[in-house]
Design a protein around this nucleic acid. Sequence first.
RNA 1: GCCGGAGUAGCUCAAGUGGAAGAGCGCCGCUCUCGUAAAGCGGAGGUCGGGGUUUCGAAUAUCCCCUCUGGCUCCA
Length: 646
Amino acid sequence: MSSITITLPDGSQQQVPSGSKPIDIARSISPRLAEDAVVARVNGNLYDLTRPLEGDAGLQILTSKNPEALEVYRHSTAHLLAAAVLELYPDTKLGVGPPIETGFYYDFQRDTPFAPEELEKIEARMWEIQARDLPYERVMTKKSEGLPKYASEGAWMKCELIEEKAEEVFSEYTLGPHFIDFCRGPHVPSTKRIKAFKLLMVSGSYWKGNEKNARLQRIHGTAFFSKKDLEAYLTQVEEAKKRDHRKLGQELDLISIQELAGPGLIFWHPKGALIRKIMEDWMREQYLARGYSLVYTPHIGRKQLWQTSGHADFYADSMFTPMELDDAEYRLKPMNCPFHILIYKDRLRSYRELPVRLGELGTVYRYERSGTMHGLMRVRGFTQDDAHIFCRPDQIEDEIVSCLQFALDVLSAFGFTQYEAELSTWDGGASGKYDGSPEQWGMAETALHKAIERLSMNAKVMTDEAAFYGPKIDVKLVDAIGRKWQLSTVQFDFTLPRRFDLEYIAEDGKAHQPLMCHRALYGSVERFFGILIEHYAGAFPVWLAPVQAIVLPITDRHAEYAMKVKNQLAAAGLRVEVDATNEKVNAKIRTAQMQKVPFMLVVGDREAENGTVSLRNRRHGDQGAKPVDEVLAAILKLTTDRTPYE
RNA sequence: GCCGGAGUAGCUCAAGUGGAAGAGCGCCGCUCUCGUAAAGCGGAGGUCGGGGUUUCGAAUAUCCCCUCUGGCUCCA
């Protein structure tokens, strides 16, 4: 038997017989490693631990510490799920079953949907199969043999996958004598390796994610290497649910959605409205400080406007239906851009006045399909902090840099340190689905790349994800339940300047077309607020808190002094209340804590006599007696400094 | 829009084989005058999401609709 050379990550080399398996080599290094091993990386590709090595190879053994190993492990758990479902419901057809960020799922086609109670039964069967310690065996099959086999079983989804993806000889993985699945792998060696999983929910899906295709049943689950990790994850999910903005929005009396008025329409209650006002005021100040002009534009516009902008053709599905008036047909605006463009176009522009930056907190209405609304995050009426920048080509890079810097400043003002940025580019023009010339795309994408570099941002490049009218950079944040939401966006637009025939007079005395960029930083005030509620778990920092301090008189004998303290703080511009209810101070504290008021000022005989308050911080508890002036100054400072956390 | 699940007092939730609708919190009133996360007593409050059908009788069975919710699709 010939021997092959295996190079390990530390550079050391071993001569082993050809056909040796990664698990053998792991075992030769240490039995412990062999036990912890999940999967191998061979010349950069993931391999089963039991897959024979045919030639010289760089080999890395991945253990449970490796994120890719967790994906493999979850993928194997998905197979375990499929095997259990087939044992219990043999007529079920298999779709796909990949690992995802939070676990895994498998799509099934079956006449009757899985009832939630059935999950327990399936999970129990999974444990039975797990206990059988079945190996995940890789089998190589010729397409000409495999396809008829799947076809004869009626596994039509697998047939489609094989037609589309499989090489002439493809891999399948078995699990016991009856289960075999077309799959690229790799997998863990056997079911015994799977120690901790839980099926979480069942939901609908579509074959290949297309709603025109067959409806499938998706079973979601999660899996971890240890029961402890699984428990920790489940606890974390429970904790996250407590900060769901919909729950806190109600508990803190911030917002509501009224069935009588319609779904996806937000009512801002006094406390929510106050926070919104602060957010908006801050944003407007920033606009003015950064060279934007503020404008206001109407909520509706004539049909002809939307025809000119192209929305009537390309965006009609997302627009509210038209309103007939005596003179014309009007439509509610789904975007602000056409209106800002009309302001730009209202007179001739000189190159000297560019860039023109027109900003507005503009409320737009979009028809969202009924199943897609989600609290504040996805609604039918929302306000964008929207601006459109019209500039010369030589200005565009600096403009993009300042937009992105602005976006980062917004994030840091609210204490966000975790975000994801994506740079969406076109496909190079191959498909013809993008508007604009290759020169325009080249220039715009270069400007975006350069801007990212200049700010040393990390942005994932998403090829073929651009808007049809231009490339863009998006910033996304994650909500309490782990879902990603887009906030800031900076987008080029090659289309609207052309459609509206925008111009400026350049140094050469001739008319040129300006470049245009859309940008929104909160994205939607509603969504950003939803993210903020969850980010702070309802405990807004002092500068945003609707009630910054509450004075708690111990008995009604102290109410007068409490009012005096309140008035003193309020005179300095602070938002203060007095809890004059006929309750014990403990109850007042509890109420204030639950309302997440940053500061509680307890006042009784001692305080009234000394001109002090007994300060309680919502996070750190009793801080002892302090002069009113001192407390006032401290709260005022947190407010004016806009400290993201106190 | 699609596939599941749900809708009972302001909130969180019980009960109910079809036969007068319940609790806790909250709210209102009274008593207590209280020192860092819930004082006591009393009271008000419900077309059981809306509409139809079956029935002597429907919160309960059944059909349609609405809204919420978990996904899918789509998106700020």
